[in-house]
Amino acid sequence: MLKINNLHARVEDKEILKGINLTVNAGEVHAIMGPNGSGKSTLASVIAGKEEFEVTKGEVFLEGENLEDTAPEDRAHKGVFLSFQYPVEIPGVSVTNFMKTAINESRKAKGLEDMPAKDMLKLIREKSELLEIDRKFLSRSLNEGFSGGEKKRNEIFQMAMLEPKLAILDETDSGLDIDALRIVANGVNKLKSKDNAVIVITHYQRLLEYIVPDYVHVLHNGKIVKSGDKDLALELEEKGYDWLKQEAAV
């Protein structure tokens, strides 16, 4: 599904990713953990194609295709989805309208007609139930005045609507209370299949109790310094990151 080779990226003159190697297969869940400033969100943004970041070396492949010259919207059409850590507000554009536009743009890219309104409504109903979203919420302006939890739930709702191949959840757990966390995790689990993959970026073990990863990677100073199974997350929870930092420094 996703293959990253020796990826280096910088913003302005600052190198943030310093040689990332990562392979994610269909049906897998990977967790990326690591201290603040280790490059987790940058990695997510680079995969999604944010232009602010310059890839200086290495490649990202999605289903065997090099994404180097692929615009962010085209990556989205190919099935990359990023659940943002800080979703932006778009005043005057309802959640429904936004989703309708997103879905139809993706369909257009695939040479399909707009989704009929009836099907769109059905899909919205189905997915909003999955995430226990009040339908009134869907007519509100996108993220405007949303609480932290509402924003994150809305991100996962969008993921459910778009049915991506590769979903990257960037700190989706931050700002969520325990009930919201359970709903969001439950949603992600229901969307999981043998044909798609999920990358969960998080600081804490908490979310991983609900979304159980097949692999855990620790990112430090722009590199993956340790990989393991779900037990690695528990170990990190217990010991913190310092021992890994020391190990990496050696």
Binding site: R75, H77, A102
Partner: peptide, 12 residues
């Protein structure tokens, strides 16, 4: 950021 957010959802 607003533009990138839309781009990421497949909107040019």
């Amino acid at each position: 950021d607003q533009i990138f957010y839309c781009n990421q959802r497949g909107i040019d």
